[in-house]
Computed example of a mutant assay.
Amino acid sequence: MKKLLHLELIKNLSYTNFWVIAGLWALLYVLIMIIICMINIGLPGIESKPYLQFPQVWSMGTWIASFFNLLLGIIMIVSVSNEFAFKTFRSQMICGLTRNQLIAGKGLFTILLAVFSMVIVFLVSLVIGIIYTNFGSETSIFEKSYLLLVYFIQAIAYMAMGLFIAVIIRNAALSILTFILYFFPMEFILRSFLPETVQQFFPVKIISNLTPSPDIFQLSASPQMVTNINGQISEGAPPVADLPLNIILIVSIAYIVIFYAASVMIIRKRNL
Results as ranks from 00 to 15, higher is better:
25 W>N: 10
26 A>W: 13
30 V>T: 15
30 V>Q: 12
31 L>E: 09
31 L>R: 05
32 I>A: 10
32 I>G: 08
32 I>E: 14
33 M>Y: 01
34 I>D: 06
34 I>N: 05
35 I>C: 10
35 I>D: 08
37 C>A: 15
38 M>H: 13
41 I>D: 07
42 G>V: 14
44 P>K: 11
45 G>V: 13
45 G>S: 11
47 E>Q: 15
47 E>P: 05
47 E>H: 15
48 S>D: 06
48 S>K: 10
48 S>L: 06
48 S>C: 07
50 P>D: 11
50 P>T: 08
53 Q>P: 05
54 F>Y: 07
55 P>F: 01
56 Q>R: 11
56 Q>A: 14
57 V>F: 00
57 V>A: 03
58 W>F: 04
59 S>R: 09
62 T>M: 01
63 W>R: 10
63 W>G: 10
63 W>D: 07
65 A>P: 13
67 F>G: 14
68 F>Q: 05
71 L>N: 07
71 L>W: 03
73 G>R: 00
79 S>W: 08
79 S>T: 15
80 V>E: 03
81 S>F: 10
81 S>V: 08
82 N>G: 13
82 N>S: 12
82 N>M: 11
82 N>D: 13
83 E>I: 01
83 E>R: 04
83 E>D: 15
83 E>A: 03
85 A>C: 02
85 A>N: 06
86 F>K: 13
86 F>I: 09
87 K>S: 12
88 T>E: 06
90 R>G: 06
91 S>R: 11
92 Q>G: 11
98 T>V: 04
99 R>Q: 06
100 N>F: 13
100 N>R: 15
102 L>T: 02
103 I>Q: 03
105 G>H: 11
105 G>A: 12
106 K>N: 07
108 L>Q: 05
109 F>Q: 10
109 F>M: 12
113 L>S: 05
115 V>A: 07
116 F>S: 14
118 M>N: 01
120 I>L: 14
120 I>G: 03
120 I>M: 09
121 V>N: 01
121 V>H: 03
122 F>N: 03
124 V>P: 11
125 S>C: 02
125 S>P: 10
130 I>D: 02
131 I>Q: 09
132 Y>F: 11
133 T>G: 02
136 G>D: 14
138 E>P: 00
139 T>E: 02
140 S>A: 13
140 S>V: 07
141 I>L: 09
142 F>H: 00
144 K>V: 00
144 K>M: 00
147 L>I: 05
148 L>M: 07
149 L>W: 06
150 V>I: 15
155 A>P: 01
157 A>L: 02
157 A>S: 11
157 A>K: 04
159 M>W: 05
159 M>G: 06
160 A>N: 08
161 M>R: 03
163 L>R: 04
163 L>T: 06
164 F>L: 12
165 I>C: 08
